[in-house]
């Protein structure tokens, strides 16, 4: 394994690790705030579908980071 190959693997690891931090925080915030809203007002549980939409919007950026490892 040459140095370039090793650097390639390290770069892919950093890319996945760094790229998943943001969506991880985002999905955690969405889920936590949803549960908090349900805890305060149990009738808010009908908004689970809308919370999932925002989860999908946030998730896109993590998936972009995942897909980028096939390009480098």
């Amino acid at each position: 394994m040459t140095v370039a190959d090793a650097l390639n693997i390290v770069a892919k690891g950093l890319m996945i690790g760094g790229g998943f931090i943001g969506p991880g925080i985002g999905i955690g915030l969405i889920g936590g705030n949803y549960l908090q809203a349900v805890g305060r007002n149990p009738e808010a549980s009908k908004f689970l579908g809308q919370a999932l939409i925002f989860v999908a919007i946030v998730e896109l950026f993590g998936l972009l980071a995942f897909a980028s490892i096939f390009i480098v």
Partner: peptide, 13 residues
Amino acid sequence: ISLSLRLFLNVAI
């Protein structure tokens, strides 16, 4: 772009 990439990446990944 965002609509198409979201669906494609979810299924392909």
